[in-house]
């Protein structure tokens, strides 16, 4: 993709990729990191099924399920924001961005509550292999949600002077693409670490 994309002007007009190519490279790198993480998780879990089952039995499902819904709601808000900017409905679009951040904050609060409980119970990265994966994956993802919110906040801030509108959507689409990636990773993480027992 690296090389050819530069010569696009010569290519016939084809499908449009929303957002910036640089962000897609970043997203690919992030997905690769998480992908390798999940793969290694699978290998370790195969080797120590009892340990992982025992660890998972300490994980409540209610809060993570709520968190899943919150992130998906955030994603929906990002879609709405892009659509509204495309129609030049500036105020409504910015409201959608704000709402996405509210949902994101909700996710972060729930997650913090869950993680705090684990830390109080004396669980650390060095406890055992299951908790090593649990903490590194969830904290790493948590920080991605934070980063996603920073990006959305930046878009919200820059949108105040009408920078985004019909035909000028790259910035919003780029932010939305990142948010969807964070959402996608959570769905896999939720299924793999919390649900699949």
């Amino acid at each position: 993709m690296n090389g050819q994309s530069l010569e696009l002007t010569a290519a016939p007009p084809a499908r449009h990729i929303p957002g910036d190519l640089a962000m897609w490279c970043f997203i690919l790198a992030e997905l690769a990191v998480f992908g390798v993480f999940f793969l290694v998780y699978g290998v370790y879990r195969r080797q120590q099924p009892a340990l992982f089952a025992e660890g998972q039995s300490h994980l409540a499902l209610l809060l993570p399920t709520l968190n899943t819904l919150l992130l998906i709601a955030g994603s929906a808000c990002m879609v709405a924001a892009v659509k509204r900017f495309a129609l030049d409905r500036q105020a409504a679009a910015r409201r959608a961005l704000l709402l996405a951040m509210v949902f994101g904050s909700g996710f972060l609060l729930c997650k913090l509550y869950e993680l705090a409980g684990k830390f109080m119970a004396g669980i650390s990265l060095s406890s055992n292999d299951f908790w090593m994966f649990y903490l590194s994956l969830t904290v790493f993802h948590f920080l991605h949600v934070v980063l996603g919110m920073v990006i959305v906040a930046a878009v919200w801030w820059m949108a105040r002077d009408g920078r985004y509108g019909p035909g000028r959507l790259d910035g919003v689409e780029t932010a939305a693409a990142y948010w969807h990636m964070v959402d996608l990773v959570w769905l896999v993480l939720f299924a793999l670490v919390y649900v699949a027992r």
Binding site: F37, L125, M132
Partner: peptide, 26 residues
């Protein structure tokens, strides 16, 4: 150092060839 570095070090450094490959293509 604690054992979790085996996980983190392996995952991230497995991707370290990527930028070098991009540099070559570039």
């Amino acid at each position: 150092t604690p054992g979790y570095w085996q996980l983190l070090g392996s995952v991230f450094s497995a991707l370290e060839p990527v930028p070098f490959f991009m540099m070559t293509v570039f």
